[in-house]
């Protein structure tokens, strides 16, 4: 059985809900079983925010998890909260401009927000850069399926930007994966 428990963590307004929906939607389209759970209430509109996604190649017996196997941390607070629980073979992606890492960890580092801002001219697209990068790291979801999910879920006027952001995140991760395979964490 292949199962991945993914946690997307950051602050309210960073679009983690949408990121989870795009990832989950794409996974569904790719034939996986999916469940998602997003933070709810005041925290979803400010403060700490998180979205959990479970992907599985069989029916998901238990959709709830306390410790993720894949973590996206968009800020230091999110990393401090969930990073320490990760096991050595768990997968982590952080926004390297915002998260200071202990050196020994093997973590994918991308300046997500900076890339969204400079290349997509839209800071808010950092979530989609992250989705592209995560999907490339996790495997199982083809890029074209991911792009289609992003298009169908995009807010008005954001389809092109979000798709570009996903493609960029995907490429960055492909480069990084090579680096990690050669040993050690790398930043983009």
């Amino acid at each position: 059985m292949w199962k991945k428990e993914i946690r997307l963590a950051g602050s309210g307004g960073q679009g983690l809900g949408l990121a989870a929906m795009v990832l989950a939607d794409a996974a569904l389209r790719a034939g996986l079983q999916v469940s998602t759970l997003q933070s709810y209430g005041p925290e979803a509109r400010g403060g700490a925010s998180r979205s959990d996604v479970t992907l599985c190649d069989q029916d998901i017996a238990n959709p709830w998890f306390s410790k993720p196997a894949v973590l996206l941390a968009l800020n230091e607070k999110a990393w401090m909260k969930y990073g320490p629980e990760l096991a050595e073979d768990d997968l982590a992606l952080v926004d390297s401009d915002w998260v200071k890492l202990p050196e020994r960890r093997t973590v994918y580092q991308i300046p997500l927000e900076r890339i969204a801002k400079t290349e997509m001219r839209e800071k808010l697209a950092a979530n989609m850069v992250a989705v592209g990068a995560l999907a490339a790291a996790i495997g199982r979801i083809p890029l074209d399926v991911l792009m289609e999910a992003a298009r169908s879920r995009a807010p008005k006027g954001f389809a092109r930007i979000n798709q570009d952001a996903i493609r960029r995140g995907w490429e960055l991760m492909e480069d990084l994966k090579g680096g990690v395979d050669r040993g050690g964490a790398r930043g983009a």
């Binding site: 929906m21 999916v34 469940s35 759970l37 709830w64």
Partner: peptide
């Protein structure tokens, strides 16, 4: 409960 209420499943 709240988890089932807000959880999305395929």
């Amino acid at each position: 409960d709240e988890v089932l209420a807000h959880m999305r499943e395929g």
